[in-house]
Amino acid sequence: MSKKSAIKTSLFAAEEREQKLDRKGDLLSTLEKHVKFSDLAAEIDRIAPRPNRKQGGRPPYPTELMVRVLVLQHLYNLSDEALEYQLLDRLSFQRFCGLRHSSSIPDANTLWVFRERISAAGGADALFDAVQRQLQQHGFIARGGQIVDATLVEAPRQHFRKAEKEKLVQGETPPEWTDAQRRQKDTEASWTKKHGKSHHGYKLSISADRKYKLIRKRHVSTAKEHDTNHFEDVLDPANTSRDVWADKGYEDRAREQRLQQNGWRLHIQHKAKRGKPPSECQKRRNTRIAKPRARVEHVFGAMLAMGGKRIRSIGLARAEFGLSIKAAVYNLRRLCSLKESGVAPI
């Protein structure tokens, strides 16, 4: 190499690179600043204590480290194998997880075992609720009413023969399937059509508060279930306002009357009926509702950037776990955005 090479060596090169990352606004450094990962880990340890290794074997990694790894996976939409590689290769990931000087890192199997253990214990609900408490500690309580909406989440497509489909419709498992096939066949994901296009997978319903665009409630169902079935499941009674916005897919006169009697102020767009176009008054009302309702699309757009419109897992239980964690990680990222942009809680 030429003596005039611009490459410089330094005993402090790693520290200098970290300082440059901080100056450029490293998201992981921002998460470190605003999120108490020790509190999230404590909640996981409460519902799913770490395995006892008194009988021998390698001790499990600290829960806080594994929670951080889980956040990385959903923040960057990485498979278990890809995440293992990035932990080995990527400086910012190592720094975030406290692994810069570690001779070992959690591998793909370790992450799978951790995820399965806490999923069976209700870890998704615990982690989501723990994040909600941190939002409230920062002063970002649910304000300004809420917007309810749902989005389709694609799952790995399944191919069944006619005889297999007939058995599944009857609620039975084809007897010729091996144990390995049973594990790999997703019999719970379903098909639906939207705007003339077929989709296979699940559906994530949420309510986001209008003020901060934070997800307050969520529900996961199969794709074929209609959005309106889970409208009340995601209503957040803790919001400071009783206003609720939703698109015309949620129109249900009987339910609206019942909820209005209980104090809710519903702003649901009117759906035109066949052969009866909406009146000018209804069009104006739909337009008024459209602007506040559109704020929930910003939430789904951010989740899409995090890979939130597709899952790799099989089965409703794993879909519920993965999408709940995705919603919690979205909230952590949104919290950092609010704090760094100087938005002050009211």
Score class of each variant (00 low, 15 high):
Ala108Arg: 12
Ala126Cys: 09
Leu135Val: 09
Gln146His: 11
Arg182Cys: 05
Thr110Ala: 14
His101Glu: 12
Gly122Asn: 06
Glu164Met: 01
Leu99Ile: 00
Gln136Glu: 14
Trp177Lys: 03
Ser102Val: 00
Asp107Asn: 11
Pro174Cys: 05
Ile105Glu: 13
Arg95Thr: 07
Ile147Trp: 12
Ala163Ile: 10
Gly145Gln: 10
Glu116Gln: 15
Glu154Ser: 15
Arg115Asn: 10
Ala108Met: 08
Arg115Trp: 11
Thr173Asp: 06
Gln137Lys: 13
Lys185Met: 15
Arg161Val: 05
Gly139Trp: 10
Leu152His: 07
Gly171Glu: 15
Ile105Asp: 03
Arg133Pro: 00
Asp149Met: 06
Gly139Glu: 09
Ile118Tyr: 05
Asp125Pro: 03
Gly98Cys: 09
Gln146Phe: 02
Lys185Asn: 13
Asp125Trp: 04
Gln181Ile: 09
Thr173Ile: 15
Ser103His: 09
Glu166Asp: 11
Ala150Tyr: 04
Lys185Pro: 01
Pro175Ala: 06
Val113Gly: 00
Ser92Val: 03
Arg100His: 01
Arg182Glu: 07
Glu166Ile: 00
Phe114Thr: 03
Ile118Leu: 09
Gln170Gly: 07
Phe96Glu: 01
Ser102Phe: 00
Thr151Arg: 05
Val153Ser: 04
Trp177His: 01
Val169Gln: 15
Gly122Ala: 08
Leu99Met: 02
Val113Lys: 15
Ser92Glu: 10
Leu135Asp: 02
Ser103Phe: 07
Ile141Asp: 11
Phe160Leu: 13
Asp125Ala: 11
Gly145Glu: 06
Gly171Met: 10
Pro174Thr: 02
Gly122Glu: 11
Lys167Leu: 14
Val113Ala: 09
Ala180Trp: 12
Leu127His: 04
Ser104Glu: 15
Gln158Cys: 04
Trp112Leu: 14
Ala124Ser: 14
Asp125Cys: 04
His101Trp: 07
Glu116Phe: 00
Gly98Thr: 06
Ile147Ala: 12
Val169Ile: 15
Trp177Pro: 01
Val148Lys: 09
Ile141Cys: 05
Val169Phe: 08
Leu91Phe: 10
Thr178Asn: 03
Pro174Val: 02
Ala108Tyr: 06
Ala180Thr: 12
Ser104Leu: 08
Leu91Pro: 00
Arg95His: 06
Thr178Tyr: 08
Phe140Glu: 02
Ala126Met: 02
Glu164Asn: 02
Gln158Pro: 13
Gln134Arg: 04
Arg182Leu: 01
Ser104Val: 03
Arg115Gln: 14
Ile118Glu: 01
Cys97Gln: 02
Pro156Ala: 11
Ser104Ile: 00
Gln158Ser: 07
Thr151Gln: 07
Leu168Ile: 15
Arg157Ala: 13
Ser103Gln: 12
Thr110Asn: 11
Val131Asn: 03
Val153Pro: 02
Glu172Pro: 00
